[in-house]
């Protein structure tokens, strides 16, 4: 079980959290203006990296807040967590 540092509550075990998929995919402000291709890409196209992945988590059995985390998909180590709206932090390799 992973330890995930919630940016609001601190380190907590994984079972207090729910996963929310890839981070930094903003819902388009005017979806009607988008082509089918663009909308399709918003709906369905996701990264599947081997390595760093910025992703959404929710501290559902805690503060219930959504936040973002950078996780290394090879090791499951959480490299950083940060609040919604903040940019993905630079992490030295």
């Amino acid at each position: 079980m992973l330890i995930i540092p919630c940016p609001y509550c601190g380190e907590r075990p994984e079972l207090e959290f729910s996963y929310g998929g890839q981070a930094h995919i903003d819902r388009p402000l005017a979806p009607s203006d988008l082509s089918d291709e663009e909308w399709n890409s918003y709906l369905y196209v996701r990264a599947n990296p081997k390595g760093r992945h910025a992703e959404r988590w929710r501290h559902i059995h805690g503060c219930a807040r959504f936040f973002n985390a950078v996780r290394d998909t090879r090791t499951d180590h959480i490299l950083a967590t940060y609040k919604v709206g903040e940019p993905e932090p630079e992490i030295p390799a």
């Binding site: 729910s18 929310g20 903003d26 819902r27 959404r56 929710r58 559902i60 219930a64 959504f66 919604v84």
Partner: peptide, 13 residues
């Protein structure tokens, strides 16, 4: 409820 929270917290702040 989870989906409502998601939109409120992350899209429609």
């Amino acid at each position: 409820l989870g989906m409502m929270e998601d939109y409120l917290q992350t899209e429609w702040s």
